[in-house]
Simulated assay, not measured.
Amino acid sequence: MTRKITLALAIAALALFAQAASAQKPGVERLYIMNCGEGVAGDIGRWSPGVNEGKSMDFVDTCYLIKHSQGWFLWDTGIPDAVASMPNGLVPVDPKAITWRRPKTLAAQLAQIGVKPADVKAMGVSHTHPDHIGNVEMFPQAMLYVQKAEYDWPGANNEPRFKPSHPVELLAGDKDVFGDGSITILSTPGHTPGHQSLMVRLPRTGVVVLSGDAAHFRDNFDNRRVPAINFSKEQSLASMQKLADTISREGAQLWINHDKAQRDTQRMSPEFYD
Rank of each mutant, 00 (worst) to 15 (best):
Y64D: 01
D76F: 05
H68F: 11
A82M: 08
F73R: 03
G71R: 02
S85K: 12
M34Q: 11
K55E: 14
N35Q: 13
N35S: 11
N35F: 01
H68M: 05
A82E: 09
G50F: 06
D61H: 01
A23F: 14
A23Q: 12
F59E: 00
M34K: 10
M57S: 12
S56A: 10
R30E: 05
K67Q: 15
V51A: 03
C36R: 06
V28I: 14
D81P: 09
D43S: 09
L31S: 02
L31W: 01
A84W: 04
I79W: 01
G27D: 03
G78W: 02
G37I: 00
G78K: 00
K55C: 03
G27A: 05
R30V: 13
W72L: 12
L65E: 01
A41F: 07
L31M: 15
G50M: 06
P80W: 03
W72F: 14
N52D: 13
C36G: 15
M57W: 14
M34L: 15
S56C: 08
V40A: 05
D58Y: 00
I33F: 13
G50T: 06
C36L: 12
P80S: 01
V28R: 00
H68G: 02
K55T: 12
I33C: 08
C63D: 04
F59L: 01
V51D: 04
L65D: 02
Q19I: 13
I44H: 12
A20E: 07
W75Q: 06
Q70H: 11
N35Y: 05
Q19E: 07
P26C: 03
T62C: 05
A20S: 08
D43E: 10
N35M: 06
S56Q: 14
G78T: 08
D76K: 03
W75K: 00
P49N: 09
A20K: 11
S69T: 15
E53N: 14
C36K: 05
G71A: 04
S69F: 04
V51E: 09
A23L: 14
G78P: 11
G78N: 06
D43I: 07
C63A: 15
V28K: 04
G37L: 00
D43G: 05
V51Y: 13
Y32K: 00
L31C: 04
K67T: 09
P26Y: 03
W72A: 00
G50R: 09
R46W: 14
W72K: 01
V83K: 06
M57T: 10
N35E: 12
N52I: 08
F73Q: 02
L65A: 01
A84P: 13
A84I: 03
I44C: 03
D81Q: 05
D58T: 01
D43K: 02
V60R: 00
E38Q: 11
Y32T: 05
S22A: 14
T62I: 10
G27F: 07
K25I: 08
E29W: 03
P26R: 08
A20M: 09
S22M: 08
K55W: 05
G42Q: 02
E29D: 11
Q70E: 12
M57N: 14
D61K: 00
K67R: 15
P80E: 00
I66Q: 00
I44N: 01
M57P: 07
F73T: 04
A21F: 12
G42M: 06
I66M: 06
S69V: 09
W72I: 08
Q19D: 09
I33V: 15
M57G: 03
S85W: 04
I79N: 00
G45D: 04
K55M: 11
K67P: 13
E29K: 15
